[in-house]
């Protein structure tokens, strides 16, 4: 049932408290979808990566083929920031006199640690990958970091779209006034200011990207957020928090995966634990995954787990 839901959505997030098995669940979903013939790109944004352990091979910032139709990426915020900064540094080097280059590098080095820098760089990569849905792959599955990070990350497009909108409004006004001032110049109309055009183009590009990602994330037909929890008090509480915060940001929970449920003896206890979630989201599709003897590892185990979906 869960797999049917997922196969209709291009952008799939898995989130929940640390240690509930997000990585395992998302990797298993990815493998199952790939097995059905869908091209899947699985991405981990958790700084404590363990896709590599799970697949028993090296996974890095560039796509690695795991099985046919399935590639995996471990995003490294640090490396993304470096790439972002070196691009800007290249610009600055062009416009600054040669003597000032060391100073620019120092400035950028300081900017590296600015708050939000890592998230922004990460977001940039996600936006790139999300733009590839339908072209490079059918599904982008994101194994997100623990709740706090994820919420910041998902709130960023909304916040930054507002920011770019403000900046664009400023530019529109300034450009309009400049244009009117130019209309009143004696020497006839002069050509547009190339710098103003460049600023506007940069802002528009940024806005397109951010707003595009925001629209994608909040579109329930194209994206789905799957909360992963275990039948214990703390993870359930955190799932509640996560779901509510996402709801406030315009993202509805699409499904719930309850992981590591202990045999029939614990069934009643499990139901009791999940009451707060039932009360909050009575119609939320739910999958129950039974506790395995050992934590699944390797493709075969992951596919086996997916049969419970």
């Amino acid at each position: 049932m869960l797999l049917n839901l997922l196969s209709g959505r291009g952008l799939i997030f898995f989130g929940g408290k640390g240690g509930v098995g997000k990585t395992t669940v998302s990797a298993s979903a990815a493998a199952a979808l790939a097995r059905r013939g869908r091209r899947v790109c699985l991405v981990s944004t958790d700084p404590a990566h363990n896709l590599g352990h799970l697949f028993e091979r090296e996974v890095g910032p560039h796509p690695v083929a795991i099985i046919p139709n399935l590639t995996a990426i471990e995003l490294d915020p640090e490396a993304s920031v470096t790439a972002h900064l070196s691009e800007i540094g290249g610009f600055l080097h062009q416009v600054m006199p040669r003597g000032g280059r060391a100073e620019i590098d120092r400035h950028l080095e300081r900017a590296r640690h600015a708050p939000g820098m890592a998230e922004a760089a990460l977001l940039d990569r996600i936006a790139d990958l999300a733009a590839g849905i339908g072209r490079d792959h059918d599904h982008l599955i994101l194994d997100t970091a623990p709740t706090g990070h994820t919420l910041t990350l998902l709130a960023l497009p909304e916040m930054m779209t507002a920011w770019t909108d403000g900046m664009i409004a400023n530019r529109a006004e300034a450009d309009r006034f400049s244009a009117r001032a130019r209309d009143l110049a004696t020497g006839g109309a002069s050509s547009n200011d190339p710098r103003a055009d460049a600023i506007r183009a940069t802002l528009m590009r940024r806005r397109m990207r951010l707003a595009g990602l925001r629209d994608h994330i909040t579109d329930a037909d194209r994206a789905v957020f799957v909360a992963v929890t275990t039948p214990e008090r703390m993870p359930v509480q955190e799932t509640l928090t996560l779901g509510r915060a996402l709801g406030a940001g315009g993202i509805a929970l699409g499904a719930l995966v309850v992981n590591r449920v202990h045999g029939h003896a614990g069934q009643e206890r499990t139901d009791e634990r999940l009451v707060p979630l039932d009360r909050e989201w009575p119609n939320l599709p739910r999958s129950i995954l039974m506790q395995r003897e050992a934590e699944p590892s390797g493709i075969a185990a992951l596919e086996e787990l997916a049969q419970d979906f």
Binding site: R176, A179, R180, D183, L184, A189
Partner: peptide
């Protein structure tokens, strides 16, 4: 008029 169009003076 001067703000919204490029009419000149």
């Amino acid at each position: 008029v001067l703000y919204r169009s490029s009419a000149g003076l």
